[in-house]
Design a protein around this nucleic acid. Structure first.
Lengths: 245, 245
DNA sequence: CGCGCCGTTGAGCCCGTTCAAAAAGTGTGG
DNA sequence: CCACACTTTTTGAACGGGCTCAACGGCGCG
């Protein structure tokens, strides 16, 4: 469970990174809650009217949206330190997407109003939020390229590489590690890549057979990220774009 | 060509909306240029190192990205008043996508540094930028749902509806108008929807035959938006979500 | 008139889907 | 420890939406 913001281990990546210690103490006043959500449960749902915003403290989560006919598209995977729940338009309109815990998850909860209040005193905080939102948009854009212009094989390779780098970057000093914890089911990969779980299975099996990656017991191993990147038909050099992951 | 910011007709929708008149005068100091770009020309390209940011003053533009094998995905269409060019990470890194003029286009150009400078004095401006970025992200998310989970017919219906509402909203007092100027080629629709121009042609012909829309001489007519929305398998009620368009 | 761009139409193929079923975990309670 | 239910992964067979390749028509423009 999250403790005091002053000792927060994810602050290095989080919204409140630019603040000085005494300023972090201030955020305590606006943090309304620390919350634990079970694996598979919703944090909020499409249509809900809450205006809370969140920093993911521990675990994996995702944002998703459903079409009128009920099929699901995963918009974004969330890792520790990621900020989410901020919406365009007046705070208090209905949520435009859902957020679900993938693993069991710990959250820091803030009110949207409190966030705006904090901005008045700390311009850097506002800049940081804008950057993080722009980063999310850049990741969304990369996914758009995947869904629009890449084959199933390329999409899956690309998603796994993205998550590989994002997870690894959160573990300081692990630049050469080739294994990460990877809790996603094949169905979740499918819903993110715009494919069926069946086709994900076949394609993943093919990638494993070619030794481009290993995935077993929720552990993902990528022996040669550059080789996998070549199979991903990437538009961008992941290693060179760490800042946006 | 854009004139003085104080008399700017797109300010109603633009980044600088929250400013008082005397503050708008200040933005003049940071606006480095007004620029005209010919139809089809690039405003900036993937990989470029410029750190300018832009408000589209007149015309249509788009953001796009290319995969390693050269195919193009359009990420977003830009209409008058839209702000673009802001990137995550330190200003000055290479552009992660390209921006092209679709029609002839007029731009207001600012430096990224100037923008940050303005934020120090005007917190509302920072909030406004964050909101606009979050709005762009929401549109990108909606496109992700299209590319991932909708059929060609639904994608095209959805895109045309989105643009219809976005354009119409920019013309105050035109809530009941059913025609808009629509300069896109079928190939541009294809690159936005993740389809081939050929299949866009066939699908568009089908939608026209069903009288769900008319498209001729760069004029798009949607006689009954609700009926088209039903064909779009929409995840959200467009009319109810004007704020994010 | 000739050229390029854009839109249109036809035929055949392939990637990814659908439907179906079985095998392999995973957690729960007796 | 096993029986049971449930989720996740795996495999097979057939279908189909959208792609590829190819050709033609219309329109604006030099």
């Amino acid at each position: 469970m999250p403790g005091m913001c002053g000792t927060c281990p994810v602050r290095r990546l989080a919204l409140f990174k630019p603040l000085q210690d005494e300023e972090v103490a201030l955020t305590q006043c606006y943090r309304v809650d620390a919350r634990y959500v079970e694996s598979g449960e919703a944090i909020y749902r499409q249509g809900d009217t809450g205006s809370e915003v969140y920093t993911l403290y521990d675990g994996w989560a995702c944002l998703s949206q459903r079409t009128a006919d009920g099929s699901r598209q995963i918009l974004e995977f969330l890792l520790p330190g990621d900020f989410f729940g901020f919406q365009p338009g007046p705070c208090g309109d209905g949520r435009i997407h859902s957020a679900h815990a993938i693993t069991a998850v710990s959250l820091c909860v803030f009110t949207c109003d409190g966030l705006l209040e904090m901005f008045r005193g700390h311009v850097d905080l506002g800049m940081r939020l804008t950057w993080m939102t722009a980063r999310d948009e850049a990741i969304a854009h990369e996914h758009l390229v995947s869904l629009g212009r890449r084959s199933a094989r390329e999409r899956i390779a690309h998603l796994l590489l993205e998550l590989f780098y994002r997870v690894r970057m959160r573990q300081p000093g692990s630049e050469r590690v080739s294994k990460i914890d990877f809790p996603l089911t094949q169905e979740q990969i499918a819903d993110a890549c715009g494919l069926t779980n069946i086709h994900v299975n076949r394609t993943l099996t093919a990638l494993k057979n070619e030794k481009l990656l290993m995935l077993k017991d929720k552990i993902l191993t990528i022996p040669d990220p550059d080789r996998l990147a070549a199979a991903a038909n990437s538009s961008r050099d992941f290693a060179a774009n760490r800042s946006i992951l």
